[in-house]
């Protein structure tokens, strides 16, 4: 029982981390131009991912 007290919060925390990362990427506009991002990866001149 006592190990559950650690494991469950840990699982939830890690899941929450993933969720948080997704929500952040959504908010920062990384899904605005999926087609463009695919091409920009091949472009040597542009070193930055998104403005």
């Amino acid at each position: 029982m006592s190990n559950l007290l650690i494991l469950i919060p840990a699982a939830l925390f890690m899941g929450g981390l993933g969720l948080g990362a997704f929500l952040w990427s959504l908010k920062s506009g990384q899904y605005e131009d999926l087609d463009g991002a695919a091409w920009r990866a091949l472009d040597d001149g542009d070193g930055k991912p998104g403005d």
């Binding site: 605005e32 131009d33 087609d35 463009g36 091409w39 920009r40 472009d43 001149g45 403005d51």
Partner: peptide, 27 residues
């Protein structure tokens, strides 16, 4: 396509008046 992005952005950035240019390929 990718070349279109570079062409349009490059043409705009050549102008001294333009400070930032970004093409959105999806829209």
């Amino acid at each position: 396509c990718g070349t279109c992005i570079t062409t349009v952005e490059g043409a705009l950035k050549e102008s001294p008046l333009v400070t930032r240019a970004r093409v959105n390929l999806s829209t």
